[in-house]
């Protein structure tokens, strides 16, 4: 006692800094999540389940699941292909390509939706041609899927690129020299090496795909029971002052977010060294 450790703070200051941090986290992170669940149960479990069982809510849940089920595998395939090309080979223009892949993260969600309306909408560049052939993309499910693919575009690629760069090409070269063909090399050597990083990227991609609001809001047209995803349904219910139902549907999304965070934490804790970058 008595001797002050030269590289830490006095006890009182330490406690003060911890308290300030926790208060900040409490106000901005904990209270919003708690609000979602308490408001959702505002009329008890009966009201909660009635809200979730509503046909419009169920069709929104179905559309959200469908959208993620298309968008996530597409971006997963892209992420694997892009990281293979970028990490296993040396070529000029690589850093430009990486910047372009990250581009959707810098674009406002509303603009992510807007670009598809300008391309495929009735007044869009391809609008007249699409109308002639009776193909509807905007204000229909294909538009929702496209906008979701756009906003979740970089997730898998940006997890896999640093990971595969760290792993280098030695194991693939060894597999080749032992007579494995390209696909065998991928399935038996590369994929097992990147599986946890891949799962990590897919997890984040899926959370965003199911929760995307701005981009989908622009392209959807919000036709109840047809082009309404869960986040859009939350908005409609909330604007109709159907607060319990809005928060009931929102609570499913909040639950998904919490599960995603837990799964992400478990992956970082158990396989941090296999995730690449600074994920450990």
């Amino acid at each position: 006692m008595g001797r002050i450790n030269p590289i830490t703070e006095r006890r009182g200051l330490r406690a003060g800094l911890i308290a300030a941090s926790l208060l900040y986290i409490l106000l901005f992170l904990v209270l919003p999540v708690v609000t979602v669940f308490t408001e959702a149960l505002g009329k008890g479990f009966g009201g909660y389940f009635t809200a979730i069982n509503d046909p419009a809510a169920r069709s929104a849940i179905k559309l959200t699941l469908l959208t993620a089920a298309i968008a996530v595998p597409f971006n997963m395939a892209f992420g694997i292909a892009a990281s293979w090309a970028i990490a296993k080979f040396e070529f000029r223009g690589k850093s430009v390509l990486i910047t372009l892949i990250d581009l959707p993260f810098s674009v406002s969600p509303v603009i992510s939706g807007l670009i598809y309306v300008l391309l495929f909408g009735a007044q869009g560049i391809l609008g007249p041609w699409l109308a002639e052939h009776d193909i509807q993309i905007v204000f229909a499910v294909p538009g929702i899927v496209l906008a979701t693919i756009f906003v979740t575009f970089p997730f898998v690629a940006r997890e896999l690129i640093p990971l595969m760069q760290e792993q280098g090409t030695e194991e693939e070269e060894a597999a080749r020299s032992l007579g494995a063909d390209g696909w065998q090399t991928f399935w038996r050597v590369t994929l097992p090496n990147i599986r946890w990083g891949l799962l990590y990227g897919v997890l984040l991609c899926n959370a965003r795909a199911m929760g995307e609001f701005g981009a989908v809001s622009v392209v959807s047209g919000k036709i109840r029971g047809l082009t309404n995803t869960m986040p859009l349904h939350v908005e409609i219910l909330y604007n109709e002052y159907n607060i319990v139902a809005a928060f009931a549907v929102a609570s499913l999304l909040a639950f998904l977010a919490l599960v995603t965070l837990v799964a992400k934490g478990v992956l970082e804790w158990a396989y941090g060294h296999e995730l690449g970058g600074a994920r450990a």
Partner: peptide, 11 residues
Amino acid sequence: FALPTAVAGIA
């Protein structure tokens, strides 16, 4: 990063 923006918005 994980909580959908609309959910955060109404909360």
